[in-house]
Design a protein around this nucleic acid. Structure first.
Lengths: 150, 150
DNA sequence: ATGGGTGCAAAGGATTTGCAACATT
DNA sequence: AATGTTGCAAATCCTTTGCACCCAT
């Protein structure tokens, strides 16, 4: 547990350095949180999860840091839910699923994700820099609880 | 022009009836607006576009009606931009593009969209009810203005 | 010292809510 | 009358902003 935390913190530190971003305490903690919590946390959830360790942490820092991480490719911003933006520390292309019942955002590792090999141009001349494939519906757990048949 | 307006209004009326939704003046106008303005308007834009014709129209009604239209399949809710939800009167599956420079949401009719033939189940047992494929980047117009090379 | 990074409080927007009024059957 | 719909205003929630402080170089 301790070791895992340490490794992940170190991992976060290394990733930030690799992008030329100064690995401040807050940034390492926020990226570390994303790497250890694959639950697609919202800004609020990251803030709540870290405010114990960093009592003076501000919402502002969480907002700006998460946005920055998404901007430089160390995380993904997920806008699948119209109520809450959330983030994913796994920046590799994969499909996301939103359950309209319980509100969870889940990974769909078995679905094939559209990927961009470098910069891509559409037939209209638009430059594509990122892709997101979102599925919405009812997750397995909620379907069972509600006895929904396939 | 007049005729086109009339036809579209009638179209909206018919579509609502077809779903068993009472075609009130507001609902017909809002769906009609989506059908005539393929610019992926936000709630505010729909409100502004209709408040002349329907002076007493409220934001509440636009919010609830658009959400309802998306819920019953007469429109798509688009959450490609983390700042603004917008809506598309074309409910058929197609790819959307968001320009991070000008903020416009564009259709990509030439990209192949993942489609759901009826209800689909993932390997994890989740029930998929809708799909959205989003591309983000720089649109052709903005790329030219900024002299960005492909 | 100087620049980037952070925290705080306040402001700004977007969306929802409760309830009264209205329309339609 | 009864039900469903709408409008208004207030409340709520999310996010950004301005500025002062702090830390690291």
């Amino acid at each position: 547990m301790e070791d895992k935390e340490m490794t992940t913190e170190g991992d976060a530190y290394t990733r930030l350095e690799g992008k030329g971003i100064r690995p401040s305490v807050q940034r390492v903690a926020i990226l570390g949180y994303l790497l250890t919590h694959r639950t697609h946390p919202t800004v609020e959830e990251v803030y709540n999860g870290l405010s114990h360790k960093i009592p003076k942490l501000s919402h502002t820092t969480v907002y700006t840091t998460l946005r920055m991480l998404a901007g430089c490719g160390l995380a993904q911003m997920i806008t699948i839910d119209d109520h809450h933006v959330c983030y994913d520390g796994d920046a590799s292309p994969h499909v996301h699923f939103y359950c309209t019942r319980c509100g969870r955002v889940l990974d769909l590792p078995n679905e094939k994700a559209p990927s961009l090999r470098g910069k891509k141009i559409t037939s209209e001349g638009h430059i594509i820099l990122s892709v997101q494939l979102y599925y919405k519906g009812v997750c397995h757990d909620c379907a069972q609880k509600e006895h929904i048949e396939a």
